[in-house]
Simulated scan of single mutants.
Amino acid sequence: MRYCSLGSGSRGNATLIEYGTTRLLVDCGFSLRATEQRLARAGLSAHQLTAILVTHEHSDHISGVERLAQRYSLPVYMTAGTRHGMGSTDLPVRLIRFGEDIDIGDIRVTPVPVPHDAREPSQFIFDSGYHRLGVLTDTGSITPLITEMYSELDALLLEANYDPHMLASGPYPRFLQARVGGALGHLSNQQAAGLLASMDTRRLQQVVIAHISEKNNRPELARQAVSSALDGWSGQLQLAAQNQGLPWQEITETTQPTIACIGSR
């Protein structure tokens, strides 16, 4: 399994996951043209995509979904709440239900409910049968379910959106500071670090810091906080940027099938 970011931040988000002949695009917060350009930079055409999964209806995650799906006849998966939050659209949607895994090609997708100020937001875990990749952004707080579901991963793309001191002294008005820093907002550097500190990281090969705020954070602050929770860890820590994204990252195959897929492949 491999994955890359086409861009991550408040001006647009899109993540690619690939295993076998299956290529999934998580969110599409860029224009059609920009998405095609970013896909080309990753060595792909939109014709090669299998499906689009949508985490929630905020514009930095959905602004390009409808045009991309219609242009290339791609199925789109999202929750009923996200579909309602998108408003008027002719886009045919395949509904996601929490508690039910989805098999899309060679990848099993587990939707995870998260606290965020959207109608029915979801994040995802991707399982090839030999790899487990977690994507966790746009989450205001870490719930016990998140801690449970995001255990025993091989790779994790994790939001570290803001530094609390920068948010409090930054340009955002008070109401927006409260929204970002609230229980339905985004994860701070320290919250991201707290999740990692609570995890068993012996299997974890890679951590990618994502959705870093350009106004309320700095990459070095996010990296420092996350690194402090990974003391003694021998894996790879990287950042997904707004403009450059992150190049393809390969997850090394484990020697045993993942528990979730034993007997199901």
Rank of each mutant, 00 (worst) to 15 (best):
D127I: 03
R97K: 14
G20Y: 04
R33A: 12
A222V: 13
P164H: 08
L74V: 12
Q177P: 01
L133H: 03
T147K: 11
R71I: 07
D27W: 00
E148P: 00
N161W: 03
Q244M: 04
L239P: 02
G105A: 11
I212T: 10
G85E: 06
E100T: 14
Q191V: 00
A69C: 06
L157F: 13
L24G: 02
G194Q: 15
R179E: 12
Q206E: 14
V76S: 06
V135M: 08
W233P: 04
S198L: 03
Q224F: 11
R223N: 05
L24M: 08
R203M: 11
Y77R: 07
L156I: 00
G20L: 01
A80F: 01
S151M: 04
H56M: 09
P111W: 11
N189P: 05
T82R: 06
D27T: 14
G194S: 14
R11K: 14
A46P: 07
R94N: 14
V112K: 12
Q244D: 15
H58E: 03
M1V: 13
G232R: 06
T89G: 04
A193P: 00
S122G: 15
D117G: 01
A192R: 08
I102F: 12
I259R: 13
Q177F: 07
E250P: 00
F98S: 08
L239K: 04
Y130K: 05
S198F: 01
Q249M: 10
Y162C: 04
W248D: 03
L230Y: 08
S8R: 06
T21F: 05
Q190G: 05
M199I: 03
P173T: 11
Y162R: 06
H61T: 02
S213Q: 04
T15V: 10
N243C: 02
R23T: 13
G245H: 07
S88L: 10
S45G: 14
R97Y: 03
A42P: 10
F124E: 00
I52V: 15
A168Y: 06
G99A: 10
L230D: 03
L239S: 06
M166P: 01
G235T: 06
A69G: 10
H84Q: 13
Q249F: 02
S198H: 09
A225L: 08
Q256C: 05
G9R: 01
G263P: 09
S122H: 05
G194W: 03
G43A: 10
N161A: 13
D101F: 01
G185D: 10
P115L: 04
L68M: 00
A51W: 12
L6K: 07
G29M: 02
T201L: 06
T89E: 01
A160D: 05
G129P: 01
R2I: 04
